[in-house]
Design a protein around this nucleic acid. Structure first.
Lengths: 242, 242
DNA sequence: CTAGCACCTATAGCATTGCTATATGAACTG
DNA sequence: CAGTTCATATAGCAATGCTATAGGTGCTAG
């Protein structure tokens, strides 16, 4: 029953908490369960993690690292938008594999407590979208695109977790995924401008240049010049007229 | 302090719970707080609601009715897709106005406990999308479209709730909203077929006919004929080739 | 008008929860 | 060896969700 391996108590607490959380179908996990399973008594928990929430934060952090590792496993593949697709699928799969952990990470978001993880996830996706922007494949700012895609990604994953595993239809995911990616992408000469979603090539070029500048740390311009230049670029690339 | 109006204890409990929940910044609300505020003692709560969760379910149900009422306030306006846009915005606004309630409704979804509300919300949106489908404005089945849009809607709302109220940028919402609506809509002669998202007019017509049939209860065909006919229609309107 | 009977509510208390005050052991440092 | 720091354990506190039991309150039947 008790995780008796030679691991230090801190690790045993982490693993015990993670395992109990994974198997508790929504019902709360008590510190007594955790400490008993870890073969440790209560104060040890509070010595190492300060708090029950501190322990769960640590579990979440570990889970998030696993998630990030999964996201990074894919080679760039040359096609940034295809990588975004894989990121999306990996995100959904992570949520379905560890629903309880995922719900702690993304389901109980409160303004004051936990947006750190969300910010990290956004940064991860923005990083990938930057490559797409550099390649001139993006219709909007990478940050906005990342926020939008991630929001939809989380929403879809929560919906899939909510419904019983038997009739989970992943088409919901792929459909929403492609819709979002298409919406932020400068359509690849595949069709005409789709109404209000399309932007002129000027905007696309501006966004690409902006992303490329942020990535390359070019020092052709002084910092003050660069600042103003970026402001202009931003004004261009967010112009509603297109 | 205590809600002393002449309302019956059941209502006072509901209101007390709702108010305390609304003002509790994420921290759990105890039954003692609720009963004290309602001017009632513990067993009364359990007599009427059986459970703490039962009480919260009732609060959620009331909140959901309010939400539905808000969604129905808008006249059909003749433009179904425009109504969907308003539904989306109303959904987001509801979440931002009552974040705690919203988080209980959509944030803590567990497979076994609460998809009833999700199903209701989906039905509400599907109902509206049906009109769009009848008008030949839809690219996919209304149900699939509703699920996809609602998922993104929930995701966006959760994201907006998560970030501090100061720098909430509603552009995230409008951008994602338009992306989703555009993705499911048969583009209105505004541009050519946008790659893999576009479907042929056959598919659009099939979807429209399907929705119209479901709505009109036509009895030109026998029930068994209708069943087969609908199956064919469904096969046509979900054909990947387009 | 009273007897009975559902219905609703209150007093008091149980088991469990997160957490801690205090003490004990081990390990390193001078 | 003395002293300091880190890590763990014993025991217990206040608060939690919930309940066994009992006491009103209003109704209809006689």
């Amino acid at each position: 029953m008790s995780l008796d391996g030679q691991l230090p108590p801190k690790m045993r607490l982490l693993r015990a908490a993670a395992e109990l959380l994974a198997n508790s179908a929504g019902s709360p996990v008590s510190t007594r369960q955790i400490t008993q399973r870890a073969g440790v008594s209560a104060p040890t928990l509070y010595h190492h993690f300060g708090d029950k929430e501190g322990l769960f934060d640590a579990v979440v952090a570990a889970g998030f690292e696993e998630y990030v590792a999964g996201e990074r496993d894919f080679a760039p593949s040359g096609q940034p938008l295809e990588d975004i697709r894989r990121m999306w699928d990996n995100h959904v799969q992570f949520g379905l594999n560890q629903p309880e952990l995922y719900l702690v990470m993304f389901g109980n978001i409160r303004p004051e407590s936990r947006p750190a993880i969300v910010a990290d996830a956004e940064a991860l996706m923005e990083e990938m979208l930057n490559k797409a922007a550099v390649a001139g494949q993006l219709n909007v700012q990478p940050r906005e695109a990342a926020r939008s895609i991630l929001a939809a990604n989380v929403g879809v994953t929560l919906m899939l977790i909510a419904e019983p595993a038997s009739d989970r239809n992943l088409e919901l995911s792929t459909m929403t995924r492609d819709a979002m990616i298409f919406a932020v992408s400068a359509e690849p000469a595949n069709g005409a401008a789709p109404g209000d979603t399309g932007k002129s090539s000027v905007v696309v070029a501006a966004i690409a240049l902006n992303a490329a500048l942020q990535a390359s740390h070019s020092d052709q311009l002084s910092s003050s010049e660069l600042k103003l230049f970026l402001e202009w670029l931003h004004r261009i690339s967010t112009s509603p007229a297109g």
